[in-house]
């Protein structure tokens, strides 16, 4: 018996295995593919659900922020209320001056607009001054 010789029975078995391979491999591949697809679908579904939950969380966050935005606007308006400011000023001991004095700034044209216009006039004057 040489080292390279294959026993007859073994050769016969080997031949059988060679014949079975084409039948099993596609089946295994198919099973594997189905399994992968199965898990992929499950994974994608879970991923989708997770994204949906994330989206829902973001929606809630947006709603909460919007709620906060409007609460702050309301608070801002409340803080500006003249009645509150007057009351606070009185608490701080602020009073209206007895005699109001108008200081005329020469060079500023007669202004009938609001504070914005008065400021524009003053700014123009400052620009002209050396």
């Amino acid at each position: 018996m040489t080292s390279g010789a294959i026993p007859r029975s073994a050769a016969r078995h080997a031949g059988r295995r060679t014949k079975a391979r084409p039948v099993v491999r596609p089946l295994l591949i198919f099973i594997l593919a189905v399994t992968i697809a199965f898990f992929a679908v499950i994974y994608s579904r879970i991923s989708l659900d997770r994204t949906a939950f994330d989206l829902q969380l973001l929606d809630r966050e947006i709603a909460a922020q919007e709620e906060r935005h409007w609460d702050l606007r309301a608070e801002h308006a409340r803080l500006q209320a003249p009645d509150r400011i007057t009351q606070r000023a009185a608490e701080l001991g602020l009073v209206y001056p007895d005699d109001r004095q108008a200081i005329e700034v020469r060079g500023v044209e007669s202004v009938v607009g609001g504070p914005e216009d008065r400021w524009m006039g003053l700014r123009a004057l400052f620009v002209e001054q050396p």
Partner: peptide
Amino acid sequence: GVELALTIY
């Protein structure tokens, strides 16, 4: 532009 009436949640 000061709010006189507004709706909050």
